[in-house]
């Protein structure tokens, strides 16, 4: 069914092309600097194209650390496992919360929402993880990140919006809640599940602080982000304790801009590939059509 292009379509297309240019710029800038000679980069003025092309920055990163490949695998594993467990946990809990007749609905809902705004701080959390014996154990990547209140609430609000006639008829057919959840609700929720999967995967992929805090004693558990962080070591300086002597040491630790940019590219490109894969779940009408057939 071919439709005529209206002025609206043309303006919109131009606008979106503009959005692409504007949002692509920082990334191209990083890519260009990462492929540019480190000394030359100091002169500034590099935009989207390297001036003195080189792969030396990447070589330096891969050359400086022989754990990178292993760390990369661990990052994939924690991302995959963390995403799957996270999805299962969030959808289950979200479903129970979407059932307004559920006896614990209000209590659990409040319990969950409050966790978004309260936190005990680093020391108590560290002590908890330590007392649970999770230090240097793979589960430290999965358990503490199992649920995020935000994700659960997003899924639940999506579920709230689903047409419920199907659910009712299944109930009449004698299906129990678990069957309704897995056979009816889950397929209907694919767009939101894809979204949350993306959020979870990105969170898992990007986290390095938990590796540092809880797993640096076990080399097998090291992750890509953590290894890159160690190379980057962008000595995060708060103005308080600077003086000429320690500042010199800190300055000596910082890497040329080109290396930082190359690290950014290595750290982000793998996770960027996830989105296009999930994109097909965002097609309008897919879910309802599937249910109806």
């Amino acid at each position: 069914m071919k439709k005529k292009w209206t002025v609206f379509d043309i303006v919109l297309t131009i606008f979106m092309a503009f959005v692409i240019v504007v949002t692509l710029y920082p990334f191209l800038n990083i890519l260009a600097i990462s492929l540019n000679d480190a000394v030359d980069t100091a002169r500034g003025g590099i935009h989207i194209w390297p001036r003195e092309f080189t792969l030396a920055n990447y070589q330096e990163i891969f050359g400086s650390n022989d754990l990178l490949f292993q760390a990369f695998l661990m990052s994939i594993i924690r991302t995959v496992v963390g995403t799957i467990t996270g999805i299962i946990a969030s959808t289950m809990l979200a479903y129970t919360l979407s059932r307004k007749d559920f006896v614990l609905n209000g209590f659990v809902g409040l319990l969950l929402v409050l966790t978004m705004f309260i936190s005990g701080g680093l020391i108590p959390e560290y002590m908890l993880i330590r007392n649970l014996g999770l230090i240097n154990d793979f589960s430290v990547y999965i358990l503490p990140m199992l649920l995020t209140a935000f994700n659960v609430i997003v899924i639940r609000s999506f579920m709230d919006n689903l047409p419920v006639a199907l659910e009712e008829s299944a109930k009449i057919d004698g299906a129990n809640d678990f069957v309704i959840f897995s056979k009816i609700i889950i397929p209907l929720c694919m767009p939101v599940i894809a979204t949350i999967a993306l959020f979870l995967a990105v969170a898992q992929w990007n986290s390095w602080f938990d590796t540092y805090l809880y797993a640096r004693g076990n080399e097998a558990l090291t992750t890509l982000q953590f290894e890159l962080m160690k190379i980057l070591d962008n000595a995060n300086i708060s103005s308080g304790d600077i003086n000429s002597q320690n500042a010199e040491v800190i300055a000596g630790k910082t890497n040329p801009q080109s290396i930082k940019m190359a690290i950014t590219i290595i750290a982000t490109v793998p996770i960027l590939l996830v989105y296009p894969f999930l994109q097909k779940y965002f097609v309008t009408g897919l879910t309802l059509g599937a249910v109806k057939s």
Binding site: G120, M127, L143
Partner: peptide
Amino acid sequence: FVIWLLVFKYIPIA
């Protein structure tokens, strides 16, 4: 998950 919430989110509130 309630137990999880209590352990991982509420105990550290101490």
